[in-house]
Write a protein that binds this DNA or RNA. Structure first.
Length: 192
DNA sequence: ACGATGATGAAC
DNA sequence: TTCATCATCGTA
């Protein structure tokens, strides 16, 4: 956790477009790129939550890329459905869904509109596991389809930290063994 | 190693 | 309407 503070409305307005945290808001164009690049670049960035008036930022430490209709581990590989439709829309929007009868998963949509891809946020500083991230940040269905921006109460910031390539490990994704040859692709990104 | 726990999507 | 599945986690 980088900081915890109460934003005063005056302060937020005065500092726009660098409100809330001290980092720079990641705008939509950051996410309008190939999902593997976005995934890699999200490491070291901050996921920032405003909840009940308090703002907290967490450095992102672990992500996974889900890459379009041909990726058998990606929900979009079974076509567009009510659940996954957000992935087919504009980059920079959250795709949040419920699994195993008890856990929420947070994804951010990437790439060009119409191409269904997203990055799963698997871990942040001090919080390992995608379900724990959502529990800690109070993330649920209400954020599904929302733009990652201040008004949503959940967004990303660049805190000026660049994780060097040699610190980043790529591994197969977790929990997608059913995806056959796609299960072994090194689409998970982590750093120490 | 396994059970919890319920929404989702596809089959029937 | 029923049923298998599921991008997980806590307990053992």
């Amino acid at each position: 956790m980088r900081f915890v503070k109460k934003p005063s409305p005056a302060n937020v307005k005065a500092r726009h477009p660098l409100p809330e945290g001290e980092g720079r808001l990641l705008e939509r164009y950051f996410f309008e790129r190939p999902v593997l690049k976005v995934a890699r670049d999200l490491l070291g960035k901050y996921l920032v939550r405003r909840y009940r008036g308090k703002v907290t930022a967490y450095m992102i430490t672990e992500v996974e890329a889900y890459d379009g209709p041909k990726d058998k581990a990606c929900h979009a590989s079974r076509g567009r459905t009510e659940r996954n439709k957000v992935m087919f829309g504009e980059a920079g929007h959250f795709y949040v869904y419920f699994v195993y009868g008890m856990h929420w998963m947070l994804n951010i949509v990437t790439g060009k509109p119409g191409y269904p891809a997203a990055v799963l946020i698997r871990g942040v500083e001090g919080v390992n596991g995608p379900a724990r991230v959502c529990k800690k940040l109070h993330i649920n269905k209400k954020l599904n389809g929302k733009l990652a921006a201040h008004k949503s109460g959940l967004w990303f910031e660049d805190g000026g930290i660049k994780i060097p390539a040699e610190k980043i490990k790529r591994t197969p994704r977790i929990g997608v063994a059913y995806a056959k040859e796609w299960a072994m692709k090194p689409y998970r990104f982590v750093f120490d």
